[in-house]
Simulated assay, not measured.
Amino acid sequence: MSTFSRYFSPRRRALACAFVLAALAPPTALADAAYPNRPVRLVVPFPAGGNTDQVARLLAQSLTEQMGQPFVIDNKAGAGGNIGVDNVAKSAPDGYSLAYSTLSTYALNVGLYSKLPFDSVKDLVPVALTVRVPLVLVVPASSGIKTLPELLQLLKSRPGQFNYASAGNGTSSHIACHVFTRMAGVDVQHIAYKGTGPAMTDLLAGRIAFAMDAPSVVNPMIKAGRLNAIAVAVPQRMKSLPNVPTFDEAGMKNFRAYSWNAIWAPAGTPAPVLDKLNAATNKAVADPVNAKRIEEAGVVAFPAMTRAEVEKFMRSEYDVWVPLVRTMGVKLD
């Protein structure tokens, strides 16, 4: 055996090849394999304490545990969520700045604002879907109304004399109620409040006929007997409100009203990084402890999806909601 063969044993030759391949690998490939090697910023474009923020913090803790680096919540609220999402869209596409946002900043705001500082389709890439936020139609308990037919009968008896409340122009609650009144063929006036709190105050006082909002907002008042839940705007009954019918069951077929949460990254983020994030987020959502807390929050977890499936879902939502919002003629700028 030659000196060369004795020195370069099979094991040494394998190690040498590995070193050569590593030296030849592009720097980005090595960085992708090591991701994450420092804290990741998860931007929530809404105030702390809200429904979106609460779920984001729950999942950030799980992502931190899985990936070995802190996922730090950064609340950047304003302009209907546009400020925070724009900040991520303009960040380096390296996986260290992510947006945890909603249907609103992805599609609804496209129809509500004449000009946005970012393109939600071109400047951002979907990572994973997390939860769907169904809306619940509620009336003051003092009204005595307990069913959808009873509510519609009242609204039709005095056209134009009743009001519905929303948390503001262009919010999910506004759009949901607008579509509901159209489908039901009733003439009801919209009152836009500056947030959910004032809207619920007037609803509880009986100054407003009805409203739609997320379970996290209305469930405590339903359980306290202050609001009557008429229907949930999703295909199946909710575990947190098992005795409340769907709109289909209540007599209005195919009415859907909801929002959803998801994670996005800046366009151009490497695919291996996106795949890691997708897998980790799916695992976080499915974790039994997280799943229980998600259910208690009154939201519905999405099943695990690949990035391709997530993108397909989002584009279908975009194609539905953007034209619908534009037909409402509401502009926020």
Rank of each mutant, 00 (worst) to 15 (best):
S5G: 14
A14S: 11
L15T: 11
A16C: 14
A18V: 12
F19E: 14
V20A: 15
A31K: 15
D32T: 05
R38Q: 12
R38V: 08
V40A: 04
V40S: 04
R41F: 04
V43W: 07
V44T: 07
A48I: 03
G50M: 06
L59C: 06
Q66R: 06
Q69H: 08
V72L: 06
V72A: 06
A79T: 01
G80L: 03
G84W: 08
N87P: 04
A89G: 02
Y100M: 07
S101T: 14
T102D: 06
L103N: 07
T105L: 03
L108K: 08
N109I: 06
L112W: 03
S114E: 15
P117D: 11
F118I: 08
S120D: 01
V121Y: 10
V125S: 07
P126N: 04
L129G: 07
L137P: 06
K146P: 07
P149R: 02
E150A: 01
E150W: 05
L154R: 13
G160T: 03
N163D: 11
A165L: 05
A167P: 02
G168H: 12
G168M: 14
G168S: 12
G170A: 10
S172W: 06
V179Q: 14
T181H: 12
T181A: 14
T181S: 12
T181Q: 13
M183F: 05
M183Q: 12
A184Y: 06
G185A: 08
V188C: 09
V188F: 05
H190Q: 14
Y193C: 02
M200I: 13
R207Q: 12
F210K: 04
A214G: 08
M221I: 08
R226L: 00
A229S: 02
A229G: 03
I230L: 00
Q236M: 13
M238S: 03
L241H: 05
N243W: 01
F247W: 09
A250S: 09
A250W: 05
K253T: 10
R256S: 00
R256L: 01
A257L: 12
Y258P: 02
I263W: 07
W264D: 00
A265H: 01
A265T: 00
L274I: 07
L277V: 01
A280P: 02
A286Q: 12
D287P: 06
A291D: 02
R293Q: 11
E296F: 13
E296M: 13
E296T: 10
A297C: 08
F302I: 03
F302W: 08
A304Y: 01
R307G: 05
A308K: 14
F313W: 04
M314L: 12
R315Y: 12
V322K: 08
P323L: 13
G329I: 15
K331M: 13
K331R: 14
D333S: 11
D333Y: 14
